[in-house]
Design a protein around this nucleic acid. Structure first.
Lengths: 222, 222
DNA sequence: AAATAATATTGATCTAAATCAATATTTCAT
DNA sequence: ATGAAATATTGATTTAGATCAATATTATTT
């Protein structure tokens, strides 16, 4: 029977039984083994029965960032719901066993889950993926890369909203940007000035004009 | 009518209409105004119609960390689902308007959402809260605070699993810990040695014995 | 059990970003 | 419009943590 902590409370007996039938129990995973890997199509969510795992994001340039350590009872693969592919690698830290919860059966269980709910799941999952990307940024990028990543990301999101992707009117202060990027305000200012000197952008207070997006892109890959 | 990007795709016309009835549209929020604040009971999820926001986590010691900037069409408050209270402050960066989506109506819409699904939502949301806590750690803590936070957190989670909260048998390498905490392996090692010197812990390779949990706690508040 | 590889510790030095400090610019309130 | 407050830039200096380097310890394989 499913262990109590495999899914949070809130289920009645019948639901537990039904859910239990969707699961493969005590699937053994050897130390060092990859449970799922970044980019792989979503097939299941996992709950750890025994043992422990690490989750890791790999960056194109080879850098990697540990995004979490998971212990027994905790779930892995939630970040895959958004794009229907895993956003990280999960690697066993010791010989472990997991419950494998088939995602489609879970999501369509008794047809109770509407498409609305499913889309809500995806929104939640996308937020997890986004946060993990920022963890990668905070954990392993240098100041210039962080600021470049910030500008590129904002440019993309402005573009998605039919706003100019090159003339960014920032609504946030340098202080906010610094706090977001894990940098001090002076460093943000200096990096922006340096980018301006090098002709990548033009800075007029909160208006930033991107003049060489490729140079910014080459500074990161976010 | 609800704007297309207020919720991700995947809804049919009827669902959009139903959802639309659960929402307060174009609620105006003045620049600098707090839409919701950390600790407040969850009442609604918000989607930005126009304008932009920042989300911020406040630490007990007064430090704060920007965890994101949200633009039109993006959602805020997802992190509140887990504990039914908002995990961050949301502050308007300019005069903005939001769609307010009543959480209870959303979650109970036509009784389609089972308690199972609701509990799944909470799991997803808890992951968001956890990631944001790590963002705070990576963005604003010094090496000693990070390592202390790591040990305290692990101790708590071991305790939750009926394992010793003081004798931690680490399954991860120093390299993993370093990557997780945004530190180099040498720094992790040095901080552990320093803690040992000061009598907070005893280190024997991957066995770490916590001898002064209060001192570790006072180094952070995670 | 010995050999090899992987991990971890410790020291010396360097450097990116923080801090301290002064001034400039923008924004807001009257 | 004017003054005050908030925000931003730039320079000089310091410092926490990175890097470089050597050795020690622990795991893994033969």
């Amino acid at each position: 029977m499913i262990k109590e902590r495999c899914l949070p409370a809130g289920l009645n007996e019948e639901e537990v039984v039904r859910l239990d039938q969707q699961m493969e129990h005590r699937l053994p995973i050897k130390k060092g083994q990859l449970l799922f890997s970044q980019g792989q199509a979503l097939s299941a969510i996992y709950a750890i029965s025994t043992g422990s795992f690490k989750t890791r994001i790999l960056h194109e340039d080879g850098r990697s960032q540990i995004t979490g350590f998971q212990l027994s009872g905790e779930m892995m693969g939630l970040d895959a719901i958004s794009e229907e592919r895993y956003a990280c690698d999960a690697i066993a830290l010791e010989d472990s066993t997991v419950c494998k919860i088939d995602y489609d059966s879970l999501a369509n269980l008794e047809s109770e889950i509407s498409r609305l709910q499913r889309s809500f799941n995806k929104t939640l999952s996308a937020e997890i993926v986004r946060d993990q990307t920022i963890m990668l940024l905070l954990g392993s990028m240098r100041a210039e890369e962080r600021v470049a990543a910030f500008l590129v990301n904002l440019s993309q999101r402005f573009h998605d909203r039919q706003q100019s992707a090159t003339e960014l009117v920032l609504k946030m202060t340098r202080e906010d940007i610094g706090s977001y990027l894990g940098l001090k305000i002076e460093t943000v200012s200096r990096v922006l000035s340096r980018f301006a000197e090098e002709g990548l952008i033009a800075v007029q207070g909160r208006l930033i004009v991107i003049t060489d997006i490729n140079a910014l892109l080459s500074l990161n890959s976010y």
